[in-house]
């Protein structure tokens, strides 16, 4: 296996440029949990001219909805959800300064193009290993949409969160490199709103 690269959030353009599809990464710093309905609400806020729950500049969104924390613990189990469901919202967020995304599975061509254009990066976390991943979360605080329960936005402080670069800003794509079936790519395009 390749050497593991250590990076910190917020992400800069230079950090994004230094990453390539297939790189193993340990990420440290703050990331924001947001999934389906949180994205829908953020888009509503943008359309209505209201401020977003957190400034996007340089930030990283983790497509995740954790289990509730046991007493004395910062968070419950946490892990990535399927990223492609957030594809319809993502190019606009990248345009507004979002840099990093953590999830699982493929992105649409529109998202991949936006990652290149706005110099972002899409990381994959392994799904179904939430007991392991939660050990990297040191603190969690509510940011917005608490009424959505697991779908609300939390600010998570992570330490050495294990990731793999799937899409880099140079057009690199781990799934394309691994020759995944065309049917899988086509499926994500069909899901675009």
């Amino acid at each position: 296996m390749e050497q593991v690269i250590t990076i910190k959030t917020p992400l800069t353009g230079d950090v994004c440029k230094s990453l390539h599809a297939g790189d193993r990464v340990f990420l440290t710093g703050a990331v924001y949990s947001a999934r389906d309905t949180a994205h829908h609400r953020m888009m509503e806020a943008i359309r209505e001219g209201n401020p977003l729950p957190f400034p996007l500049q340089g930030e990283t969104i983790f497509y995740a909805g954790p289990t509730p924390a046991r007493p004395g613990m910062p968070i419950g189990a946490i892990g990535p959800t399927t990223s492609s469901r957030m594809d319809p919202y993502t190019p606009e967020l990248l345009e507004r300064g979002l840099k990093g995304m953590i999830g699982k599975g493929m992105r649409s061509s529109a998202v991949r193009e936006a990652i290149n254009r706005y110099c972002g990066v899409y990381f994959g976390a392994v799904g179904g290993i939430a007991a392991l991943l939660t050990q990297c979360v040191q603190a969690a605080t509510w940011v917005a949409y608490q009424d959505l329960g697991p779908e609300g936005i939390m600010r998570l402080q992570v330490l050495n969160f294990p990731l793999i670069v799937i899409n880099d800003c140079h057009g690199g794509d781990l799934y394309r490199d691994r020759r995944l079936p065309d049917e899988a790519m086509a499926n994500n395009e069909r899901r675009l709103l």
Binding site: G79, I129, Q135
Partner: peptide, 24 residues
């Protein structure tokens, strides 16, 4: 590497009574 993590996760989930996956 992925399978190693999956197997390690299961042991940890058992020991700490944490869900194997956050999607319960």
């Amino acid at each position: 590497y992925v399978l190693d993590q999956i197997l390690e996760n299961e042991v940890l989930a058992n020991r700490t009574q944490t869900p194997v996956c956050q999607d319960t």
